[in-house]
Computed example of a mutant assay.
Amino acid sequence: MTQALVRPTSDRAIAGVCSAIARRFDLSTNLVRVLAVLGVLFFGWTIPVYVAFWIVIPSE
């Protein structure tokens, strides 16, 4: 069973967006964080997307 997309109150580095995505898709939190950092380095649109997810994804 897949979990809902919510930002956890624990396991947050900044806002819990990567942790929420990792839980939702049953991935490693560190993998999602590394992909997010690589996205910031190679694609400029990753930061606005992260902020949008921070606003849209509800907190646990």
Rank of each mutant, 00 (worst) to 15 (best):
C18A: 13
F53E: 02
L41G: 01
S28A: 03
A52Q: 05
V56N: 01
F25C: 07
Y50M: 05
R7W: 08
A13I: 11
L41T: 11
G44W: 14
F25A: 05
T9C: 11
A4N: 14
I21C: 08
S10L: 09
I21S: 08
F43H: 05
S28I: 01
A22M: 13
W45H: 09
V40L: 10
P8T: 06
I55G: 02
N30G: 14
N30V: 07
L5T: 09
V32I: 11
T9M: 14
Y50K: 05
A36Y: 15
S19W: 01
R12M: 11
D11E: 15
V32M: 00
W45N: 09
L35D: 01
V49P: 03
I57E: 07
G16Y: 01
Y50I: 08
R24G: 04
M1Y: 02
R24W: 00
V37G: 01
F43A: 11
F42Q: 10
Y50D: 10
C18Q: 02
P8C: 04
A20Y: 02
S59I: 10
V17C: 02
E60N: 14
L35N: 13
R7A: 10
A15F: 09
G39P: 11
R12F: 03
V17K: 00
G44V: 15
V34D: 08
R33H: 06
F53G: 04
F43P: 02
Y50S: 09
F42I: 12
W54F: 15
I21M: 04
G16W: 07
V34N: 06
S28C: 07
L27K: 11
V17T: 05
P8N: 02
V6S: 03
V56I: 15
Y50L: 06
L38K: 06
D11C: 12
S19I: 02
A22W: 09
C18E: 14
F53W: 09
D26M: 02
A20F: 03
L5W: 07
D11N: 15
L41P: 00
S28K: 04
F43I: 12
V49R: 04
T9I: 03
R24L: 04
T29I: 12
G39K: 01
S10Y: 06
S59F: 10
